[in-house]
Amino acid sequence: MTKQHASLLLTTAQLWQFSLNYYGIREVKTACLNLQNQFNGNVNLLLLLVWLDQHQLTIQAEDWVSIENTLDHSESLLLPYRELRRKLKNHVSEPLYREALEFELQLEQRQQSDLVEHINTLTLYRATEKPLTQQYCLKLGCEHLFTSFETSAEQLKMK
Rank of each mutant, 00 (worst) to 15 (best):
A31R: 05
N37K: 13
Q36C: 12
L132W: 05
L71H: 02
R85E: 11
F39S: 12
I67V: 15
H91I: 08
F39K: 09
A61M: 03
I119W: 01
L124W: 04
R86G: 13
A127W: 06
P95M: 06
A100W: 05
Q36E: 15
A127T: 09
V116E: 00
S66L: 09
V28F: 00
A100Y: 11
E108K: 07
W51Y: 14
L105Y: 05
F39L: 12
A61I: 03
L71Y: 03
K87G: 14
I59G: 01
L79I: 14
V43P: 13
S76I: 06
E104F: 07
L107C: 10
S93A: 10
F103G: 03
Q36W: 14
W51P: 00
E129Q: 15
G41W: 08
S93C: 04
P95T: 07
E27R: 00
L47W: 04
V43N: 13
E108F: 10
T58N: 08
H55I: 02
L52Q: 00
E62H: 14
P80M: 08
L49Q: 09
S74G: 06
F39R: 10
I59Q: 04
S113H: 10
E68T: 11
L132C: 05
Y97D: 06
H73E: 12
E108Q: 13
R26C: 13
V50L: 09
E27M: 00
W51D: 00
Q112A: 02
N69W: 07
Q54V: 01
P131L: 05
E62I: 10
S74Q: 13
P131S: 10
Y97S: 04
S74R: 07
K87I: 10
S76Q: 13
L33F: 14
P95E: 07
L84I: 10
D114E: 15
P131R: 04
E99Q: 12
D53F: 02
N42D: 15
R26G: 10
L115Y: 00
L88E: 06
D53V: 01
